[in-house]
Design a protein around this nucleic acid. Structure first.
Lengths: 150, 150
DNA sequence: AAAAATCACTTGCAAATCAAAAGTAATTAT
DNA sequence: ATAATTACTTTTGATTTGCAAGTGATTTTT
């Protein structure tokens, strides 16, 4: 997996160099909205990502500082993937994508309800969710260093 | 070029079924921020899209009602591509992508200035720009029906 | 303690997609 | 009439994807 050369100085183009495919943002979605954080979790999603693609995307996102690989507190066989601040900051992007889809494509009524809520006070929703995510991942980053069995 | 089957009911996934690649959003970017609206215009962009890819992406976006193909008022040899309302509504998505890149990747100082301006009053910027785009494209949609040489 | 299951991957291969270059057909300019 | 522009299409080879089948380390079950 090569490191993608910036195709141009354009901020949109640079972002697409990392996320311009059908899968990367779905992994971020799973981490933000569905509390998923292991390889196996991501495989279980509705879109059925292939194992090699998943491994490759996780690597690219790790190389770009969007996610971090940690040892899982429950088991040495597992790997814990957490979002960094850079990753958490994708929340507004994912929100706007959802608002667009809500307006122009067909979206289930339950998701529509959640989006309506988020749209009502966008800023507050983002701030609250961001804090929640930071708390969640900070806890996971720190925990593993406290020896679990001694 | 097949019509993409929705991989799932997820709004993010559905949006990525249309725009999940390295090029489509760059074409939208060019139409929104650089006033480009012909095949030749898009080819001239810094990222150097291949002609076959460009043709394919334009078709997919047209099929999805994001852009419209019109006869160019200046020449029968040209095709005029304009954004529909659905396409114009991608502005907030592109803005958030740029805000993210501005914060987490390196961005030129001139673009940074424009983004700072946009961020200062996001809502107003979106409203103003949206109106401008609607005006611009409405004019183009209507003009060609007034016989140019008779 | 041995066997089965889980977990996070890797490998191999066929199919799809992409990129670069050249070609085409319809205008338009000289 | 000739050359240039414009919007593509076609061809070819390289890259990426998706699927199925491993692999090796751990963990759970018996």
């Amino acid at each position: 997996m090569k490191n993608k050369a910036n195709r141009s100085g354009c901020p949109i183009s640079s972002m697409l160099d990392i996320f311009g495919d059908k899968w990367s943002l779905l992994i971020i979605r799973d981490m933000i909205f569905s509390d998923k954080n292991t390889y196996g979790d991501f495989l279980k999603s509705d879109e059925k990502i292939a194992t090699n693609i998943l491994a490759s995307r996780l690597l690219v996102m790790e190389e770009n500082g969007v996610i971090k690989r940690l040892e899982h507190p429950d088991s040495k066989a597992k790997v814990l993937y957490v979002l960094t601040g850079k990753g958490i900051d994708l929340l507004p992007v994912l929100l706007e994508i959802q608002f667009w889809s809500d307006k122009h494509l067909s979206v289930s009524t339950e998701i529509r309800a959640l989006l309506k809520e988020a749209k009502k006070d966008r800023e507050k929703f983002i701030k609250t969710k961001t804090k929640e995510l930071k708390r969640r991942f900070d806890a996971l980053v720190i925990l593993p260093h406290q020896a679990p069995n001694s």
